[in-house]
Design a binder for these strands. Structure first.
Length: 576
RNA sequence: CGGGGUGUGGCGCAGUCGGUAGCGCGCGGCGUUUGGGACGCUGAGGUCGGAGGUUCGAGUCCUCUCACCCCGACCA
């Protein structure tokens, strides 16, 4: 490609509304342009990156037996009604009508279409297992898009689906995906980790996320320094030590004026936070009052609490709602309340003789004990982990990291196939629901994550696997012999299968160097009157600050050799 | 949806007390330059986000509205 005719210009300054590096650099480097909130055009340079990410994904999906297909972006709403998600998913899914007043939805994912296809295409256990996938547009009307390509509303996603006869076979397909994903993210040069995750709106039983490390990531991860455990904050567990057993002491009311927070209470009574029981009040989506009880030194993980209660949303209760069940804001305890679902964290069960509210202003109770003084409807774990929390496996203090979710894998089970009647006949001729898994990779987000991890003050430092071009070729000077020599090298490189972005513009050298570094192709070649006089070409890697002079007739071989080395560095089979 | 912020030429910005819109970069032409974002001359390009209002007069004041960004809520 000759830069003199490339569509899209580089920008000297980033748009004022771009804050994170990947957003700024991809706009400046003429890869993306904003159209609206969460909507981006891909310019030719950016599209090349996206296509390369897609191709890596495609190769690895094919390698585990995936069959590529393509499903529509617009769906008739009835399949979503049959799965139930038409009613479960909120405004994130866009609904529209066609000219015949028929209800349609814009696809935010494709479980429904796959399941619908399965019901007609799969009839026998002999056809299973299967892996199908497509790489296609998704529309999710996010409440808030952000960060360039990190979180957008319209985006390209690879979604694949495993179809199996039983849970054991599902494990196999799931594990194949875990391996394929490892290879994909390695090949595109990401520094990443697989963590345990919440199943969210996808439902199902098991889910893990692949997280690219980045301070600009939206997720918080807890990671064991010994590699024994890694989880999204939403589901992160930690080791809970059993406190020394104590005899249960009698309940005793204590006057605590103006002590409406746990911190004040602990100070007033001169006890550690861990000797108090904290009450947190929510109203669930069903309208039930959710009364969460947790040890005073811990915080509620609302995702875990939603899971435990089966409530899709939890809204903090108002003071009036709290009083309506017989509790008192600031002085609440589960002792004597009525009409609430009492959910107790494990920390409480393990801790005897805690201080809790007396459900009247200015008073608390000492020596409150679960089972003696009140009963729980649910006892489970819903405490948030924290930086330094003990690893649930080895007890080492966990590190807190930020990550960008670049892929996720879900075991769906029969959630969709049962509802939509996607069955196969087993060996006994009996109809059984197909067991499904669902696996996603956001293509554009991956490209952005790579930029977040691989850039410097001058621009992007692409890994060769997804760089827009392998080589930036610069002609320095307008002398005819320089132009001719650069034209010739351009042709030779292309003939050798090297992808070249040829900066043939009439600009000064500084402009070309700067743009080459901004765009970030891995190999830079420069030809000028000076190099020509010595019969050489200057070669510099984007990752290096020193150049190398290469005899003109060795350049193509040298470049292809470097390319092979660069690809090898990203090769998951090389053991590097 | 709550909180904060910004809308002036392609990008970055200025615009005082209300007086008829300017700077840098970029872009076209000519000339001089050519190894780290050159210089001179010259030229093109703006419904000042939109609507309404106040006023002799609005980029500027008032009202409404739209869009975008950031934090939170939410989120496969």
């Amino acid at each position: 490609m000759r830069m003199s005719h490339m569509f899209g210009r580089t920008l000297r300054e980033a748009p004022a509304d771009a804050e994170i590096p990947s957003h700024q650099l991809m706009v400046r480097a003429a890869m993306i342009r904003p159209l609206g909130a969460g909507l981006y055009s891909l310019l030719p340079l950016g599209l090349r990156v996206i296509r390369k990410v897609e191709q890596v994904v495609r190769e690895e999906m094919d390698a585990i037996g995936g069959q590529e297909m393509l499903m529509p972006v617009v769906h008739p709403s009835d399949i979503w009604e049959r799965s139930g998600r038409f009613f479960e998913v909120g405004p994130e899914m866009t609904r529209l009508k066609d000219r015949g007043d028929r209800d349609l939805v814009l696809a935010m994912t494709h479980e429904e279409v796959v399941t619908d296809l399965v019901s007609t295409e799969v009839n026998s256990y002999r056809q299973l297992p299967q892996i199908v996938y497509h790489i296609q547009t998704k529309w999710r009307d996010e409440p808030r898009s952000r960060g360039g390509l990190i979180r957008v509303r319209e985006f390209t996603m690879k979604d694949s689906y495993t179809l199996d006869t039983d849970a054991e076979a599902l494990d196999t397909g799931y594990e194949k995906h875990a391996v394929a994903y490892d290879r994909i993210f390695t090949r595109i040069g990401l520094d990443f980790i697989k963590v345990g995750a919440d199943v969210g709106m996808m439902g199902g039983s098991k889910s893990e996320e692949f997280m690219a490390f980045s301070p600009n990531g939206e997720d918080t991860l807890f990671i064991c320094p010994n590699g024994d455990y890694a989880a999204n904050r939403e589901v992160a567990e930690f080791r809970r030590d059993d406190p020394a057993p104590e005899d249960l002491l009698p309940v005793e009311e204590v006057e605590t004026p103006d002590t409406d927070t746990i911190a004040k209470l602990a100070e007033l009574l001169d006890i550690p936070l861990s000797r108090t029981a904290k009450a947190v009040f929510y109203i669930g989506e069903s309208g039930r009052f959710i009364f969460a009880v947790i040890r005073g030194d811990l915080d509620v993980n609302e995702t875990a609490l939603r899971q435990a209660t089966g409530e899709a949303t939890l809204t903090p209760a108002t003071a009036d709602q709290i009083r309506a069940i017989g509790a008192e804001p600031g002085y609440g305890s589960p002792v004597g309340v009525e009409g609430a679902v009492i959910v107790v964290d494990e920390s409480i069960r393990q801790s005897p003789n805690l201080v809790a509210g007396a459900n009247r202003p200015g008073y608390h109770l000492r020596n409150v004990n679960l089972g003696r003084d009140y009963e729980a409807d649910i006892v489970t774990s819903f405490a948030s982990a924290w930086e330094g929390a003990p690893c649930p496996v080895c007890n080492a203090p966990m590190k807190l990291e930020r990550g960008i979710e670049v892929g996720n894998i879900f075991q769906l089970g029969t959630r969709y196939t049962e509802k939509m009647g996607a069955t196969y006949l087993d060996k006994d001729g009996k109809a059984q629901p197909v067991v499904m898994g669902s696996y996603g990779i956001g293509i554009g987000r991956n490209a952005a994550a790579v930029v977040e991890q691989r850039h410097d003050e001058r621009g992007i430092v692409w890994p060769i696997s997804i760089a827009p071009y392998h080589v930036s070729l610069l002609s320095l000077g307008k002398e005819a012999e320089v132009i001719e020599a650069t034209d010739r090298l351009f042709a030779e490189l292309e003939a050798a299968g090297v992808e070249v972005l040829y900066d043939d513009r009439a600009d000064r050298p500084g402009v070309k160097f700067t743009d080459a570094e901004l765009i970030g192709n891995p190999i830079r070649l420069s030809i000028s009157k000076r190099t020509l006089g010595a019969g050489e070409v200057e070669l510099r890697l984007r990752t290096e600050t020193d150049s190398e002079m290469v005899p003109a007739d060795e350049v193509v071989g040298r470049v292809t050799g470097i390319m092979a080395d660069l690809f090898a560095e990203l090769d998951p089979d090389s053991g590097a």
